[in-house]
Simulated scan of single mutants.
Amino acid sequence: MILIIIVTFIVIIALSRLITKPLIKMKEETEKLSRGDTKVELNEHYNDELGVLAHSINRLAEDLERVKQERNDFLSSIAHELRTPLTYLKGYADIAAREQTDKKERIKYLKIIKEEANNLSSMIQHLFQLAKMDENTFKIEPEKCEVKPLILQAKEKVYPLISAYGADVQVECPDNIFVYADPVRFTQVMVNLLDNAIQYSGESPSVSLHVKPQRDKVTITVQDEGPGVPEESLPYLFNRLYRTDKSRSRNSGGSGLGLAIVKEIVEMHGGRIGVSNQGGLRVEMLWPKEGNV
């Protein structure tokens, strides 16, 4: 009996150490994660729940490291994007303030200052919207609404751009086509897409917008006749601050945030959006007819 008790005691101690040692290690590694240290390496070779837990903690560490890197890259990009217009504002303001600057040149520089201030204001507004989306405080109020009036309203909003570029924007949308969407956000999406298509379609832009009903979705396609984008850039067009041509985008006022917001809004409605090169850049969206948000 004494021998049995001793052997049992030894076995219990051995099993306890075998079980508790990896648990203590996991506890230490999770404490490192809570301090922001994502360099975690746990043994995943256990063929039981401990192995599954170790695998989950390792994946969590990898995801946190990726999010941390994306955050740092995003903040770095934002700092760069904000620094550029601010540099322009300061430089042109200094030139305009010089006594030897004549009236014509001063008006020219003040116009540039106004344009850069507008670009900066637009970028900050986009960043504010993206921040609200990340915090899940960006609200939509979807309802059943007719597509054609909203698209014509969006076209009217971009009329100054259409006039400035001499663009031809054709809309093909049957009457009595309805989607389940927040009308304000739907219009915002269409304005962004039309704006993007007009600006990057080259000289005398030609843009077509087609609406086609399906069984439970509505397909909306925005097609331009520009040069399109490189095939390797297509998967990244909806990434925040991504540009295929940084200099051209900046000169035309782009911030690389508009398409990211478009994608977020479409997906918040339960829709989908994609891009392809088909004689220019083709953006295709699927909007739900019924409420499934």
Rank of each mutant, 00 (worst) to 15 (best):
Y46K: 00
N47R: 11
P22A: 05
E28C: 02
N43F: 04
E28D: 14
R35Y: 12
K27S: 14
G36M: 07
N47F: 10
E31M: 13
E41V: 10
E29Q: 15
K25L: 13
S34W: 09
E44T: 14
L42S: 01
L23N: 04
R35L: 14
E31T: 10
I24W: 08
L18I: 02
D48P: 11
H45Y: 10
K39F: 14
V40A: 01
E41R: 07
N47E: 12
E44F: 00
N43T: 01
D48Q: 02
M26P: 02
L33C: 12
N47V: 05
N47S: 12
N43H: 01
E29G: 07
T38H: 13
L50Y: 03
L42K: 02
L33P: 06
G36W: 06
N43S: 13
K25G: 05
E31L: 15
L18T: 06
E29T: 07
E28Y: 04
K25C: 05
T30R: 03
K25F: 05
L42Y: 02
H45V: 03
E29R: 08
E31I: 08
H45E: 15
V40N: 00
L23P: 01
T20E: 07
H45N: 15
Y46R: 01
E28G: 06
L18N: 07
E41G: 06
S34D: 07
N43L: 03
R35P: 09
T30Q: 09
T30W: 04
T20Y: 10
L33Y: 07
H45S: 15
K27I: 12
K32Y: 09
Y46P: 01
E29P: 04
G51F: 01
V40L: 00
L50F: 09
E28M: 05
E41C: 05
K21P: 00
I24R: 11
K27F: 13
D37P: 02
S34K: 14
I24G: 09
V40T: 00
N43K: 09
M26V: 04
D48H: 02
T20G: 05
E28W: 02
N47D: 11
E44P: 03
G51M: 02
D48C: 02
H45W: 09
D48L: 03
E44A: 12
S34P: 02
G51D: 04
T38K: 06
I24F: 11
L50T: 12
L33I: 10
S34G: 06
L18Y: 14
E44C: 06
T30Y: 00
D48I: 00
L23I: 13
G51S: 12
T38M: 11
